[in-house]
Structure formats: C-alpha cells, structure tokens
Amino acid sequence: MNNAAFSVFITSVRPKLYRFSLSLLKRSDAAEDVVQEVGLRLWKGVHKGNLHPHMEALAMCTAKNLCIDILRKNTKIGKDHTEKQNHYTDPHTERSPQLVLEEKEMHAGICKLIDLLPLQQQMCIRLRDVEGYELEEIAQILECEEGSVRTNLSRARKKIREQINQLWNR
C-alpha cells in the first residue's frame, strides 16, 4: 500500500472510526485522539510491510481496543453525554416544536438506553445498526465468533425494544 492508497483508505474510514470512538468515549476530543492514534499505528504497520487483508476491520479493532484502554484508565470519561447529544438535528423542520422536542427527548433516551447495555452489546448494535457492518466483519472487529455477535445483537435489540416501549408509553 503506497502513500496515496493509504491516504484514500484513512479518509474513507475516518468518519466511522470517529463515530465509533465518540459513541464509546462521549468526548469529541478523545475520539479525535483515538482516530489519530489508529492512523499512526496503521501507518507504521504498513511501512513495516504488515498488510492486513481486512484493513478496515483492523482499524476499527484498534480503535475499539484504544477506547477500552481509555475507559479503563479514566472511569470519569463517559459520564458526559451532553456533548454527544448536541449532534442531533431535526431534518423535518415543518413539524411542530412540541413534536421536535419530544423526539429530541426520545433520541437522548435511546442514546442512554444503548449506553446502559453491556459494552459488547453496545459495540455490536452500533457497528451493525449505525455503521452497517456485516456480522462477519463485526466478529473480526470485536475478535469473537460470528454466533456470539448475533446473540449479542439480538439481546441488545430486544432490551432496547422493551425499554423503548416503556419510554414511549410513559
């Protein structure tokens, strides 16, 4: 992989790395640091001639490991949900302000529901439903079996279904 190919690859994978890191760390500066570190590690690996057959999965896996390291080091990180929730913007401006407000609250509620899931389930649902990875790719990223990914995904979705129905009917 030459410089130009690496540049194209990292540009394409950067938003995914950022979103995934942000979802786990809840801080944009920390997420950016992770993205930068992943880029640096991959670059060093490529220069040494370590070409992985699934570079994107390797990048996401490296980001996951870095995020877990940060979460372990600093337990306080992850308590600040406010910054991340500001990304929500309503694309349907013609709706009533009350409806928009309700949807915003629901959006924040869903974010909290996902954050309350076990880390493995959180990562499965984000990688599948937000990033749109195949189960096989998620298994590579999370370094586990495909069956385990399916189980975690199903459990996470069912938990969210229960919680979201309660939230909606409240």
């Binding site: 979103r19 993205v35 959006h107 974010c111 969210i160 979201i164 939230l167």
Partner: peptide, 22 residues
C-alpha cells in the same frame, strides 16, 4: 410502530455524524 421510528431515526442521525475538520 411509532417508537421504532425514533429508534431508526436515531441510527440514521448517528450515521450522519462526521468528524470535525482539523
């Protein structure tokens, strides 16, 4: 089915988040 609209919109909005330009 209304709760699922919020859920799928959440996923769609999350997927639209982009990193800030350096």
């Amino acid at each position: 089915l209304l709760p699922y609209r919020t859920l799928f919109r959440f996923f769609r909005d999350e997927a639209a988040v982009t990193p800030p330009e350096s």
